[in-house]
């Protein structure tokens, strides 16, 4: 039984994650585990009232309360869950930062997929439900990254979203060092055949789960340049409303520069999934 963990600290910023979490739980037909992290313990009704959540809006849910270090609690509770949906910011909302300290600690320390919702999120909703319509999945051609993105793809097979795979080639950069790496073809003897063949192979290799579903509108795009810029431009031009990114799990100095920039500038929900190494 899959579960969605929604940690809330009672702040407006964290509450932004409520609707995406609820929608995701309904889409996956699973339980929404609302975790209230606060020093103040409220009964269920008071808690829901405080957050402005109507009971009748919830289908299958569990509400629990914990006090203590929020990041530690979320990480502990997430062990029993399949996805975490949370706000990038909480009570001490500093929107000048790409994400608050709790969100950063959580995404750095879990292999569970984390759907991050920013305070200024733009959600594409239909009938009070958030369902991705136009998804962007950047893929660097490394099998581990594609493998990490499977949980995101498992969500997408249940939607009718158009899915844009984006592979960004670059110069002055070595390709990922990993067995099975498949980047843009260096040789394109006959472009009239090469690109079709390469695109097909890329999708088969990295998104077999999506490629094998006829109802899924899967498109592969190739761009060249700075990865962060290309992702942001692409998302803007194509009005992507959900981005799933595999990453190596650290925001330390000089690491994850692409992700830092995408998180800072992009307002749609972003799912981060840490690559198992």
């Amino acid at each position: 039984m899959k579960k969605i963990l929604l940690p809330l600290d009672g702040s407006e910023a964290s509450l932004k994650a409520f609707m995406p979490a609820k929608s995701l739980a309904e889409l996956l037909e699973t339980t929404l585990c609302i975790l209230h992290i606060s020093e103040e313990k409220l009964n269920q009704d008071a808690f829901l009232k405080k957050l402005g959540i109507k009971k009748e809006d919830l289908k299958c849910y569990i509400i629990s309360h914990k006090a203590g270090d929020p990041a530690k609690i979320i990480l502990e509770e997430s062990e029993q869950c399949d996805y975490i949906v949370m706000g990038t910011h909480g009570e001490t909302c500093d929107t000048t930062q790409k994400a608050g300290s709790v969100a950063i600690k959580v995404v750095e320390n879990t292999y569970k997929p984390v759907l991050l919702i920013k305070p200024d999120v733009e959600l594409s909703c239909q009938n009070d439900k958030w369902i991705p319509q136009k998804v962007l999945i950047p893929l660097n051609g490394a099998p581990n990254s594609a493998q990490a993105l499977l949980p995101a793809m498992n969500i997408l097979v249940k939607t009718t979203a158009e899915i844009d795979l984006l592979h960004i080639s670059s110069h002055k950069a070595e390709p990922p060092k990993e067995e099975g790496v498949f980047t843009a073809p260096y040789y394109e003897d006959y472009p009239q055949h090469e690109w079709n063949s390469w695109s097909k192979e890329f999708m088969r290799r990295f998104c077999p789960i999506l490629h094998n579903h006829n109802h899924i509108n899967l498109k592969l795009s190739l761009s060249h340049g700075n990865p962060a810029e290309e992702i942001l431009n692409f998302a803007r031009e194509n009005k992507n409303d959900f981005i799933a990114i595999a990453w190596h799990g650290t925001f330390s100095h000089l690491r994850a520069s692409t992700l830092k920039r995408v998180l800072s500038e992009c307002t749609c929900p972003i799912m981060l999934i840490k690559i198992m190494t």
Partner: peptide, 13 residues
Amino acid sequence: RRFEPRTAPMDII
């Protein structure tokens, strides 16, 4: 040489 190493053909770059 300014573009090495690269993974894409020059007409794509």
